[in-house]
């Protein structure tokens, strides 16, 4: 599916205007806003889906124009996708992504962090879930120390006074989880 220019819709009565925190206006097709639970609820509350209702611009104080542009790109791409449903309450950890998504999220980490916040604010569950899965995939297979580095976690665990190494890392498993896990043969078949 190709992305469409979001500001060139031929039917203004089916659009709303959103305003980013830096004052830029975006004309959004109402169809696209269905993917955002925040916008969909707002449109429903103010009856903006009716053609006879005057639509005031919607200020999005937490979203910059760059983020809004990125989000519109996501909404356009998923315009014809079925409604998102979190059908697995156990959150299957599938780390397979379509090529478009990999390219879309091949962005600096600070931008991804901002995009995650924006997706959370606008309540776009497909985008939010995808970014969470991308983040989970990038710490998969890493040791605790590597995860600390990747996620910039400042440990609050007491360090060994001689080595400076967090004591939990190599301590007995009972308090800290499996401290030493190795590859093993398959479990017995069911």
């Amino acid at each position: 599916m190709s992305c469409e220019e979001p500001t060139t819709s031929p039917t203004p009565e089916n659009n709303i205007t959103v305003v980013s925190s830096d004052g830029k206006e975006f004309l959004l097709d109402l169809k696209l806003t269905e993917q955002s639970e925040t916008l969909a609820r707002l449109i429903s509350n103010f009856e903006y889906d009716r053609t006879d209702v005057k639509k005031d611009p919607v200020p999005l104080g937490n979203i910059t124009s760059a983020q809004m542009q990125k989000i519109i790109e996501w909404l356009q791409h998923h315009r014809y996708y079925p409604k998102w449903e979190q059908n697995d309450i156990h959150y299957s950890t599938s780390f397979t992504f379509e090529t478009w998504v990999e390219e879309y999220l091949n962005i600096p980490n600070n931008e991804m962090f901002e995009l995650l916040n924006a997706a959370n604010y606008l309540n776009i569950p497909r985008l939010f879930s995808t970014i969470c899965r991308i983040m989970a995939s990038r710490i998969t297979g890493k040791s605790a120390e590597q995860i600390r580095t990747v996620l910039n976690i400042k440990t609050d665990v007491k360090n060994d006074v001689y080595t400076g190494i967090p004591i939990q890392e190599d301590s007995s498993s009972s308090e800290d989880g499996m401290s030493e896990i190795s590859l093993s043969p398959s479990p017995p078949p069911i």
Binding site: Y91, T93, C132, T140, K142, A144, V157, P166, G177, S179
Partner: peptide, 13 residues
């Protein structure tokens, strides 16, 4: 959305 092993390691961070 993280695997079990990743969770085990994250909880030690």
């Amino acid at each position: 959305r993280s695997s079990y092993l990743t969770r085990c390691r994250l909880r030690k961070c």
